[in-house]
Design a protein around this nucleic acid. Sequence first.
DNA 1: GTGTGATATCTTTTT
DNA 2: GATATCACAC
Length: 766
Amino acid sequence: MKDILKELNEVQKQAVTQVEGPVMVIAGAGSGKTRVLTYRIAHLLSLGIDPFNILALTFTNKAAREMKTRVFSLIENTEARNVWMGTFHSIFARILRVEGHLLGYPSNFTIYDMDDSKRLIKAIIKEQNLDDKIYPPNHVLSRISNAKTNLISAKEYSENLEIKDADSMANKPKIGILYSIYSNRCKKADAMDFDDLLFNTNVLLRDFPNILFKYQQKFKYILVDEYQDTNFAQYLITKKLAANDENICVVGDDAQSIYAFRGANIQNILDFKKDYPDLKTFKLERNYRSTQTIVKAANGVIFNNKDQIFKEIWTSNEDGQKIPLLTASTDNEEGHLVANSIFENKMNYQLNNSSFAILYRTNAQSRSIEEALRKKDITYRIFGGLSFYKRKEIKDLLAYFRLVINNKDEEALVRIINYPARGIGKTSLEKIIVAADKMQKSLWEIINETSVLGGLRINTGSLNKISVFVTMIKSYSAQIKSKNAYELAKLIASSSGILRELYNDKTPEGVSRYENIEELLNAIKDFSEKEPEITDETRETGELSVRTLDEFMQDIALLTDSDTNNKELTDYVSLMTIHSAKGLEFPYVYIVGLEENLFPSIQSLNSRADLEEERRLFYVALTRAEKHLTISYCESRYRWGNLIFCEPSRFIEEIKSEYLDSPVGKAFLKTESNLEKKSSASAWKNNQGIQKNNLKKISNITNSSGVTSSETELFQTGMDVEHKRFGKGKIVNIEGTGSNKKATVFFQTVGQKQLLLKFAKLKILN
DNA sequence: GTGTGATATCTTTTT
DNA sequence: GATATCACAC
């Protein structure tokens, strides 16, 4: 093995080689945090430490994957794949699959995602005859989630006077009851939600000392990434696991703590020393990523926060260019300005699309940007948002898999008992749910017992249909262990009627759904043919099992972000929220939508802590940039369909003017005061004018590209068109002449297609 | 019991 | 502007 330590600076090397005892690494943005983690793992392995004794925890799948690839590239030895590297949730799920029986869960328990939890809580609120205006599902869910991440059980929640008072004061005294019903229902369904994975792991380690001991022995070396984002449950679990040897190394940056809203407690990193008096602390303050300008601008911004560990991030990189501030009158114009700027930079410096990232505060902002990029024919990819696994047709088929694997999975059952329509309607289902509640049984147990089902006064037609359904699911369940994942998945997809249903749907949406199902089946095929993973069990028995459907489902249950691997796309501009950009870096970064009430978000303005979190978020955004950073805001934007006016964000002013591209920087102050004085009517008129101008500009450009008189000449870039089969779309590019003229059209449902205009029979929509 | 239009709510960020 | 739910007709 090469001497990897040579590739580290002095502090990094110390952090990597301090193998024994508690270690905390405070790693500023771009200071080589991931480098320290990966080299530390490599170093541990090079010392001959068994990979099975190493546990590395991250927050996102992306980070886990990144870490794996980087460790693999450092260590030629394939043993590295036996290190337990993964997200908190996936590692704990793995433990619970083995040990969960102690808590009364089978190893095939289902993991409920947010949608499932929401559906369930909604149903419960309704069943309890509560007003969902007083008990908004999201709010109830977040109360429950909050309790769980602080390890407060439903029972403790109801008995806690302080909580009781708080809920009564808020006129929501029933939340404790909802919590306890929700927990019961999950339990009855053999299901855990995201928070349960943490909560139950803690219960397991708390109530079963022998299990705690087992994992303490196993995980002799623990590494935790992004420690500033741990919540109480995660904090306590890692502490327990490390209690024996105290070989725990946490890496983080308090300035980048951006998950307080979901229970992360910044105090965990600030107080780490209290738990481990003989802690060794290393501060990585040298930034290798960004230019002087970017580093100093970011330092200036974060300086406005009160709560932080003092550190001075510095860099010896070049000064770099100042930060341009783009001012747009509308969100669409903002998109154009950004797209133009990217286009120019690409041309001037001969850059790939992948050198660029556009970051925003909310997912909804991506649309105007997307349109502008499409018009400029710049390939992009959106991360987050509606991922593959969240699409309806995919969730439907997955619900079949889930029910087959775990018959008690209520959410899955409700979803598909009548999909495709098989004559089991609302009334029958309601009777089943009521009976299940009364008898404290799962829905499956009700419909699986003919004697019970018979007593429910469901009409005989439906009764027969239910029993056919039960028989079908049972026949699949019987084949889980014998068939490989792909064979069984294909069988279910076709014989359940899902494939037929979608095949018969010839609308563009239907076609695309059918293709998505095919894609899912292909993914399962890949999975089935992949070499089986070496587990602890394999290690003991030497047996490599068939890759079955339930293994596949375990693999994907916790994949939520953009984890589908797009094979064709390689060079694209990245679009994502700042939250999902954490840990990434790009040469050119655009931060858009810097407006009051959007960034900082309107809901963060009430408390200092929330505002500071927004500022840290801005800090994260700034420090993603390597060479060049651009920020932008607009004076008006569409939000929930209405035009609203915006003021520039306070964060813009927090960047010292010496780092901003000044002429634009000064101008915004004027616009701000002007805008306030403008009556909304005149501002609106003004705005219309601007939009018209923009339209004109665009059509001028496209008009200039060759004119001959034929029908195909009517089509121009940017037009909205409709296609008989693909539906509505937008022309993004036109090339060729005369009868060979081709158009690239981006369709809402099926994506980009190249069409020969003389055959396409496109209808112009506007 | 099924399918279709009308309408309310939504937008913070994610495992 | 988009989605999920609801009322209503068949």
